[in-house]
Design a protein around this nucleic acid. Structure first.
Ligand code: FES
Ligand code: FES
Lengths: 157, 157
DNA sequence: AGATACTTGACTATTTTAGTCGGGTTTATA
DNA sequence: TATAAACCCGACTAAAATAGTCAAGTATCT
């Protein structure tokens, strides 16, 4: 905190956009699941081996996916996970939201007139981040798990 | 690192997309600079006060912007920074690139057949991240500093 | 000379990430 | 009914990144 002519800088504590391995893994794992999602549930162990993702980490991720009702679990031997909806109805936005990687560029409340950094007016770049957010979410809202699986099958042909 | 049936998980150390305060500040500061960029250079102290960004941090950011020839410095009293190009020619991509916040979703080499996580084949979601990268950079390539300033003036009217 | 402003580089508290670990519970099947 | 395969849950942690801070300059105007 720097003090300058009676001015105090309150550090802005806001990570304003993230998309990291957790989200990437979630999508990878779900594509894998969707591909092998015939009759039997798919175990995390299989996904872990096929995709090279730590089993323990996958468990954390799937706990979140289950809470958001994207997957369903089947316990016991021969258990695993199955999709809880049609692959076409699972959009990337849903997945990212479930694992806390929602794309959110502005932290300031939309309704309130207040800006970020506590000022009484929106900052110079507020509009930009707002547009960016729409731009990205637009992409994620359109893409479904089904699209990804199909995209993948094509590639293989 | 978990060992499982002779399998070793090498942790994937890749942050695959970032856009944080540093980039946000860089853009804010440059919009401010562009607005007040008449004849005289604009001092970081002024930007700091107007935008509520730590002066010390701004100095770090502007050092990078100068290295990439986005701004020019004028030393001494009444000194400060001026834009090194027309505001119309400074795209957001250039700004983010300068402060190391380039949007880069895939780490695997494009030419090589190898995928991320060291596998010999591209992962299930490679295409997706590739598309996403284009989608976002498309947005940033189009937006110039000039657009932002104009956008801002309109709002004020 | 003094003040203003840029320049450089090292340092650091805090937070986030990408896991790990240990102990459960549930259920199919041998 | 014993066992093993799978999910379930919460706590823990090393390493990295973030958002700065701080100190000691140098250049230039008045
Ligand atoms: S982002 Fe909304 S005011 Fe700064
Ligand atoms: S992102 Fe290119 S192979 Fe995984």
């Amino acid at each position: 905190m720097t003090i300058l002519v009676g001015f105090i800088y309150t550090p802005v504590k806001q990570r304003f956009m993230k998309l990291t391995s957790k989200g990437r893994y979630a999508v990878m794992a779900l594509v894998d699941l969707a591909k092998f999602n015939n009759i039997n549930p798919v175990s995390l162990r299989d996904i872990s081996l096929r995709q090279g993702i730590s089993l323990d980490y996958l468990e954390q991720i799937f706990a979140k996916l289950r809470k958001k009702e994207i997957v369903q679990s089947v316990r016991g031997t021969q258990g695993g996970y199955i999709l809880n909806k049609k692959a076409k109805e699972i959009k990337l936005t849903n997945i990212f939201e479930a694992v806390d990687e929602k794309v959110k560029t502005v932290q300031c409340k939309k309704e309130s007139k207040k800006g970020c950094n506590g000022k009484l007016v929106k900052c110079l770049t507020h509009n930009l981040w707002d547009e960016l957010e729409s731009h990205i979410n637009n992409f994620f809202d359109k893409k479904s798990l089904d699209d990804l699986v199909k995209d993948n099958e094509e590639k293989r042909v």
